[in-house]
Amino acid sequence: MLTRGTLIYIGQRIVLIAFTVLAVSSIVFLGIHRLPGDALFSEHLHGQQYELLLHHYHLDEPLWIQYRDYLTGVVTRGDLGESLVNKGVQITPLVLRELTISAEVGAFALIFTIGLGLVLGVVAAVRQNTWVDYVLTTTSVIGYSMPNFVIATFLLLVFAVWLGNQTDGAFYYQIGGGWTGSIGQIWLPAFALGFPYASIVARLTRASMLEVIRQDYIRTARAKGLKETVIMVRHALRNALIPVTTILGPLVIGIITGSVIIENIFGIPGLGKEFAQSILNRDYAIVIGVFTMYAAMVGVANLGVDLLYVLIDPRIRY
């Protein structure tokens, strides 16, 4: 699979991603720093103290010098600067640590979304125009119409409140208790994050499967005497995945976006929670840092999707 052409393509894409990330980072940096009012103002510091702080963060320098220093920091050392609210906290290690937590939850959500979406989509397609199909297509509209925080609320009501009451607190989901990242803690937020997208994946898969099972090669597979499950999974689904793959880019973006809310609700100390918190705290430095991270993640995810195409569809070569 990894031909020379593909490797060259990957190289080019990585360079492109790096530039995009830098561009996004710069836009956010310049956009934010043009504005009056920042975290330092809000602390009601006065005179000398304030001057000292301004100086500490080089905020007393002209904007273009700040930008130059910021850019050199990012490019040469991967340094995203220092938190404005918590003096002395370096952003890069903070963001990287939080990234691992978010990535864990996100990966679960992604697997869950794709898995559930594919299964439901295939079932709806195979049972086309039966009640199973109607129920699934109708509930999928309901699924993607529910904001993730609503889903999270319902999950908490059931698993944290109702189940707790039912079992006298012996077994229930503890909201916001210390985050250990255990499976038991991950699957509720993952479900809330993924469910709306699972509906979309299911819809796409259904449409794509219906298209594929009319194809001649499915008839060929039947004529060979293959088992129906083999035909559906190996022959139909493989091909049906090709158009479904397109949704993966937006899906990753959706999960990143969703995590900003879901991590807050479930008390997950990840990137999303940091992002929302920093915005409320007006900690620009972290907002820029996290957003830069997000741009990089989206870039890498899109590259991953492109490579996935190569894996699924042998006709695609870069």
Binding site: V141, I142, S145, L156, L157, V161
Partner: peptide, 24 residues
């Protein structure tokens, strides 16, 4: 959520149904 679920349920349900209606 624990003591007064109606506070979160009311807007959540209104929101979901409205979004659903527009999508349908």
């Amino acid at each position: 959520l624990r003591i007064a679920p109606h506070i979160v349920l009311a807007p959540s349900i209104a929101l979901s149904i409205t979004l659903m209606a527009f999508n349908f």
